[in-house]
Design a protein around this nucleic acid. Sequence first.
DNA 1: CTAGGGCTTCCACCAACTGGAAGGTCAAGC
DNA 2: GCTTGACCTTCCAGTTGGTGGAAGCCCTAG
Lengths: 140, 140
Amino acid sequence: MNIGDVAALSGLPAKTIRYYEDVGLVKPLRSTNGYRTFRESDAHKLAFLGRSRALGFSIEDCRNLIALYEDEKRASAEVKDIAEQHLERIDDKIAELKEMRATLAHLVDACAGDHRPDCPILADLATKHRGEEQLKNTAL
Amino acid sequence: MNIGDVAALSGLPAKTIRYYEDVGLVKPLRSTNGYRTFRESDAHKLAFLGRSRALGFSIEDCRNLIALYEDEKRASAEVKDIAEQHLERIDDKIAELKEMRATLAHLVDACAGDHRPDCPILADLATKHRGEEQLKNTAL
DNA sequence: CTAGGGCTTCCACCAACTGGAAGGTCAAGC
DNA sequence: GCTTGACCTTCCAGTTGGTGGAAGCCCTAG
């Protein structure tokens, strides 16, 4: 299989597949004309990668997940550990975004959004907030 | 004020402030020794930037927000428009993360996480999913 | 034999910083 | 007067995960 074929099969752009080879995630063979030659196992691995990335796993996580996938003697605990850490990162991110969203939605709501210059959004951004007092004479 | 002073006041790292100068967000003066000299207005602008970035606005958004902030004849509608677009991006991101989270949480739940190799997480990643059929003979 | 599509490499770019090296400046203390 | 240490300067490289594009083979159909 050439790169175009695995691209179609895995749904990944050819560019991305070359990048994955660059970072050592796949190691396709080369035919005499220099073209990459992908085995079934490579195609399979690329599909695995596509799904892992779609779940937001980092490239490094993917590397570890694939290593575990290929290790028949793995402990599922190791996989679960990676997934749980990722879950935690996702939760943190969601929490952060929700807080932004709340603040922003509140401001948008308060803004007339007309021809006049008065704007609570800008007013808020221009104002020092609680907890934002800079640490000056905090020593002592 | 030197960079360390505005850094302390704004809560931004000096490196970041230099970067903001690089991209044209602040234009501090220079004293004879080559040090950046920040006016009150620069410090104020940096604080504004810090808060905007904390709400997740991009640098480009910040550039526009500051321009509007400094334009006495702005229409609040322009500000609101930027904020609403950003709100939408945040909502999209939250939705995406929530979907990842749901899938992942489900998989983590199903995984024993012990010494045995059997792992529903890996099994799922290795399996083709609905809607993932690649477009082969889709033409016609 | 030529046109096209597919393949190759390499380089540059995106966001928004961050780290580090090499070196100039300044105020305090001896 | 000199040293020490905290600041400051610039510049270069790295981060994450690709993406876009140029220049140039390769291969097949007409």
